[in-house]
């Protein structure tokens, strides 16, 4: 668990991060969101001591990180940045092995770990391991970046707009991969993004920053349903905020599993987003969809009136 306690960091006269107090639970994904210049990247860089705070404290599992040597601290955390920053003179294999090599793992353990990680991020080790970064597509490079960050089983993964530089379909697939990986490994993730959909798709918790201040925290559904102020509402889409709320809620939240009446057609998963359900209703010209809960096989119905009801 990582705790920020009245953390402040200034550049020149401006407070980039202003008295932020926030706790990120172990095993969750926290999305730091806000407009450019809101201080979200600065806040992230305070966690692995690429910057040090002017005031306040950051604790990792109860230990003040100011007392941990930066190099040691960083080797315990994964770090992924938008421009990836793969080492161009090293193969994919060697890039992924960066932190294990720094930690002095034996070669056999490193080789096994690299193959495992390339598999995990969806790259075939026998095809990609010996390639150089400039021989990969942007999406593949970012997958390698994620693999490199996860190499030494970090307690915490820090991501600074990791998928900002890739095209939207690739971004979606990277987000899906990341969500699946997080589910498998249980790694705590703090991700900085200004992409509302990304924050909603990935963030178990949103932390909304504005001019360095933390203005709201909560689940995506809670933040979207009750934005703390005008700016937060505008950030999450202004007049289109309702559509983003549909991304934040699941079919299961709104479906009726007690209604015995059955509806024909291909059932939709209860953990699909309401946005997907609405898209299907529009495409099929219907106001009712059959629903199935993949976890327990229960069937139900989703009505358009329920979907839009708050």
């Amino acid at each position: 668990m990582i705790e920020f306690e009245s953390v402040t960091r200034s550049f020149g006269g401006t407070r980039a991060v202003d008295e932020v107090t926030l706790a990120v639970e172990r095993g969750t994904i926290c999305a730091l969101v806000g407009t450019s210049g809101s201080g979200k990247s600065t806040l992230l860089r305070l966690v692995n001591r690429l910057l040090d705070p002017d005031g306040g404290r950051i604790r990792l599992d109860g230990v003040d990180i100011a007392g941990i040597a930066p190099v040691e601290l960083r080797r315990r955390m994964g770090y992924v940045i938008q421009s990836v920053g793969l080492f161009p003179h090293w193969t994919v294999e060697r890039n992924v092995a960066t932190v294990p090599l720094l930690l002095g793992w034996p070669a056999a353990r490193i080789a096994a770990r690299v193959a495992e990680l390339l598999d995990l991020v969806g790259l075939a080790p026998d095809v990609h391991a010996r390639r150089y970064p400039d021989e990969l597509s942007g999406g593949q490079q970012q997958r390698v970046g994620v693999a490199r960050a996860l190499a030494a089983d970090p307690e915490l993964l820090l991501m600074d707009e990791p998928f900002g530089a890739v095209d939207p379909p690739t971004r979606r697939s990277l987000q899906d991969s990341l969500a699946a990986i997080q589910k498998r490994t249980g790694t705590t993730i703090i991700i900085v993004t200004h992409d509302v959909e990304e924050a909603i798709r990935l963030g178990g918790t949103l932390a909304v920053l504005e001019h360095g201040r933390l203005v709201q925290t909560g689940t995506p559904a809670a933040v979207l349903a009750h934005p703390a102020n005008e700016q937060v509402a505008r950030f999450f889409g202004g007049p289109l905020l309702g559509l983003h709320l549909l991304q934040a809620l699941n079919v299961g939240n709104r479906a009726n599993f007690t209604d015995p009446s059955q509806v024909g057609g291909e059932p939709i998963d209860a953990d699909a987003s309401l946005e997907t359900a609405l898209a299907r209703m529009i495409a099929e010209g219907t106001s009712r969809l059959p629903v199935v809960n993949p976890a327990n096989g229960r069937r139900g119905v989703l009505e358009l009136a329920e979907l839009v009801g708050l």
């Binding site: 692995n48 930066p70 040691e72 940045i81 080492f87 003179h89 970046g145």
Partner: peptide, 27 residues
């Protein structure tokens, strides 16, 4: 040497000397 590469090297936990020797000078 691109800033992103240096940032990634720092973030990975290279010591300043290690970063110079293994990342900056080769590049």
């Amino acid at each position: 040497v691109p800033g992103a590469v240096l940032d990634a090297a720092d973030g990975a936990g290279f010591t300043p000397g290690g970063r110079l020797w293994r990342i900056e000078l080769p590049l």
